[in-house]
Computed example of a mutant assay.
Amino acid sequence: TVACGAVSGFHSLVSSGTSSKTLDKEQDSVFVGYGSMCVESVLGVVSLVIACAAASNGHVASGTPFQIFSGAVAGFFTMFGLSQTAAACIMTMCVSALALTTLDAVGRIGRMSFQELFSVDEGQEMNTIQKICVNKYFATVITLFFGFLLCLGGYMNIWPLFGSANQLLSAMVLICLTVFLKTTGRKSFMLYVPMVVMFCVTMTALVESAYALIIKIASGNWSFLIEGLQFVLAIALMVLAISIVYHCGKELVHADNKTAHHDAQPTATH
């Protein structure tokens, strides 16, 4: 949550289809986008305070993050005369509503991302496999199936990869934005530093995670639904990220060459 306050790949995907509908004009995106991240940072700090308040003798409270958050906030509301049971029920419903809406958005974004992996450029013909994979029903089933597999492994067993996946996605978004701005003749230099930093940090984290998983698998004490699935996801994330960087890099080089060629052309005089 704290990381999302700085930069978030998930938020950047959601904003393309959700936040854009709440904006009256393009200039509003600066206020709304920056303001949202500020609020997210405050939420991160509040969550840390709540987790610390719920701790006992230096040990984190037992239960899932949702249970810890709901229980601690419910204890705060009891100071205003609300019973612990009623407060816990209200907070659990609020957190559950947040989770359900998030899962809805994730499901749709996952489905569209899967379809885009097999889409072709305008004018090109799709083969049979591509036609099947871009079908919205088939793509939805595949997306939900892998989500179901992750649930079997347990929430806390897939959580270690979430931070890397989310922040790596933000690096990919910055790269795509750089290409967009460059190819449309706009300034993009302000994205270079955060783009490189986010990519290097998240790729390093994924490599370290994959190495730790290889050690665990080599020891023989591992499960496919936990360590095996994490390793597959880590490798898939790295391969997809490198593929995006390669294609975006080609577009950037092409844009630079096009700009240099245009600048080298003699100007017309009257």
Rank of each mutant, 00 (worst) to 15 (best):
I226N: 12
S209D: 11
L252P: 01
K216V: 10
I235L: 15
S243I: 03
F199S: 05
A234N: 07
A205S: 12
Y246E: 10
L213Y: 05
S223N: 10
T204E: 00
F224E: 04
K216D: 06
I214S: 09
Y211M: 08
S219N: 09
M203Y: 07
Y211G: 02
T202A: 00
S243V: 09
G249S: 07
L229P: 01
I242E: 05
V232L: 15
L225C: 04
A205K: 10
V197N: 00
L237N: 02
I215Y: 05
K250D: 02
L206K: 10
A210M: 04
S223M: 11
I217S: 05
V207F: 12
L240D: 01
A210C: 05
Y211H: 08
L206D: 04
M203V: 11
N221I: 11
A218M: 12
I244K: 02
E251Y: 03
Y246V: 14
A236H: 03
Q230N: 15
G228V: 09
M203E: 07
S223F: 05
V196G: 00
F224A: 05
Q230K: 14
I217H: 06
S209N: 13
E227F: 01
S209F: 01
F199H: 08
L229T: 14
C248W: 03
S219H: 03
L229F: 15
E208W: 05
G249Y: 02
V201N: 02
G228N: 10
A234S: 15
I226C: 06
A241N: 02
F199D: 00
N221E: 14
V201G: 01
I226Y: 04
A236L: 14
I242S: 15
Y246C: 13
K250I: 06
V201Y: 11
G220N: 07
E251G: 00
A241I: 04
L233E: 09
A205Q: 11
Q230G: 07
M195N: 12
G249R: 04
F231R: 02
A212H: 13
Y246T: 13
N221V: 13
F224W: 14
S219L: 02
S219C: 01
V253I: 12
